[in-house]
Amino acid sequence: MALVEREHMKEDAGRLSEATAGDFIALLKPRVMSLVVFTAFVGMVLAPANPHPFLALISILAIAVGAGASGALNMWYDADIDAVMARTAGRPVPAGRIAPGEALGFGLFLSAFSVGTLGLMANWLAASLLAFTIFFYVVIYTMWLKRSTAQNIVIGGAAGALPPVVGWAAMTGSVSLESLVLFLIIFLWTPPHFWALALFKEGDYERAGVPMMPNVAGAASTRRQIFAYSVLVAVSGVLPTAMGFASLSYGAVAAALGVAFVWYSWRVLAAKGQDPALRPEKALFGYSVLYLFAIFAALLCDGLVERFGA
């Protein structure tokens, strides 16, 4: 027993892991996970159902773990390109702290557990949607689209847009038009968000051989497409009010946030990359993160007022 606990066979010495629990948590992409949890939670609050709060909490946890599992599987598959990009070279797998096989096993194990738990504690429609989200992100986006087409993050964005639908389904056992509007907001938001990043990290993607829009269609075309998508994002943001499931106050906030989104993307279009520091692109990227949090926070407030307000 002492041999197992304190000493190891020499042939295993190279495989003795120095990965801490923190490295495994990093595999779950906690920042992406926080956005998933938040948008799924908004979907749950807006859904017309009143499940026990603890069961709702378990559903959120299962969705969070499912999102983390996709992150781990993504890091397993993408370790080669993560290693050559400055932004991702420090991740646990390319940095050598976690072996690729460990990341794969961890991701598969968490996928199975998160889907099973959501199925047992909420319902199997929500669990199927969570399984589909993981499949779409890992197989369709990471393994197929990411390295083969400039439309990678446009189509792949569907995976990031599904959590509010999963949250809605966990509460109601169904998928409704309202939840699909939440999906649409995130789906349309994804291209301008990632293309703004790609414009100032173009070299990184080029080195890694990832066909992001600026590397394939050029920066000028990317700026035009960012602007077009930003207009669509602004329109989709007010759809909840237009369709009658959010208040006029929400509509006013969403309209203001949308106008600012279009203004930031207009600055990117007008600057034409002449600023060597690419400040308009960085500003749009920063604002896009704020936008998504703000628009879902506004929906959350609206939903809470509707649910508990006078």
């Binding site: 041999l3 020499k10 120095e18 990965a19």
Partner: peptide
């Protein structure tokens, strides 16, 4: 000679 002791870092991580 066939055995190896984990380092402090490896024990801490485990």
């Amino acid at each position: 000679k066939d055995r190896v002791k984990p380092t402090e870092a490896q024990l801490k991580a485990r």
